[in-house]
Amino acid sequence: MTRPIYVLNGPNLNLLGQRQPEVYGSETLGDVEHLCRETAERYGRSIVAQQSNHEGVLIDLVHEARTASSGVVVNPGGYTHTSVALRDALVTLSVPVVEVHISNVHAREEFRHHSYISPVATGVIAGLGVAGYGLAVDYICRTES
């Protein structure tokens, strides 16, 4: 049986649909997970979806994904721009890693233009709203098929 795709979301993403809908849209984290699950199921695959506001919890999930996943979709939220520790965990993965951002971080504040994650990710999707998650899961499914 194929290992699941991990979909990991960082701080404040539990507030999707409530926090700055003009930036992040009206979809909720539940909508994101539903889209990822639906996309994976088209390929006979599954997902493990987790969200945490705590850096250490996300790192532990990446460590778990090392042996339990066939790929990782990660939206590190604010940790994108600050977490060397999360980057160091992600670099240990031998499966595809797709970094996803709902908004176009490059069209926003300058501090959002730098990512510690992008250099160690297989690919980056930004600015396509929650659809970016579905594209990321689709990519991993096609890569692993």
Rank of each mutant, 00 (worst) to 15 (best):
S46V: 03
A65E: 04
Y79V: 05
A68C: 08
N104L: 11
T67L: 06
L86S: 05
S83E: 14
Q20T: 13
A131V: 14
P21E: 15
S83C: 11
A126P: 09
H54M: 12
L58R: 01
E22V: 10
V57D: 15
G123Y: 00
L13W: 14
L29P: 08
G25T: 14
E41R: 10
D88L: 15
R3P: 07
S115H: 08
G132H: 04
V57Q: 11
H101L: 05
R19I: 11
G30N: 13
V105K: 05
F111Y: 10
P21F: 13
A49W: 15
R66A: 10
E64C: 10
A136P: 06
R45I: 02
H113Y: 02
Q50L: 09
H106A: 02
N75C: 03
A68D: 13
G56K: 07
D88T: 15
E99G: 05
P96S: 05
L86V: 02
T39E: 03
H34W: 04
V130M: 14
T39H: 00
L13T: 14
G77Q: 08
V57S: 12
M1Y: 07
L90D: 04
S70I: 01
S70H: 04
I5C: 01
T39D: 02
H106E: 04
E22I: 08
H113P: 06
V105L: 10
V32P: 09
S46L: 06
G44Y: 08
A126Q: 15
V91I: 09
A68M: 07
L16C: 04
I125Q: 00
I59W: 03
G78H: 03
A40V: 07
A126K: 10
V73R: 00
T122E: 08
L13Y: 12
R142M: 01
V120H: 07
E64P: 02
L35V: 08
Y43L: 03
I102V: 15
H34Q: 06
V7G: 09
A40E: 05
G30Q: 14
T122H: 06
P11G: 12
L86M: 09
R45V: 06
R87M: 10
I47Y: 07
I47G: 09
V124N: 00
S83K: 13
T122F: 08
G123W: 02
R3L: 15
S70C: 08
V100W: 01
H54K: 15
G25V: 14
I140V: 13
P21D: 12
G56R: 09
H34F: 04
V62Q: 00
E110D: 11
G123D: 01
N104T: 10
N14W: 14
H113D: 04
A85S: 13
A89D: 05
Y116V: 10
G25R: 14
Q51Y: 11
Y24H: 10
A40H: 05
V95N: 09
S145N: 03
V137F: 06
Q51I: 11
L93R: 09
Q51P: 05
P119S: 15
S52V: 02
L58T: 03
I125W: 01
A131R: 15
V72A: 03
A65N: 03
C141D: 00
R19Y: 13
S94W: 03
H63L: 14
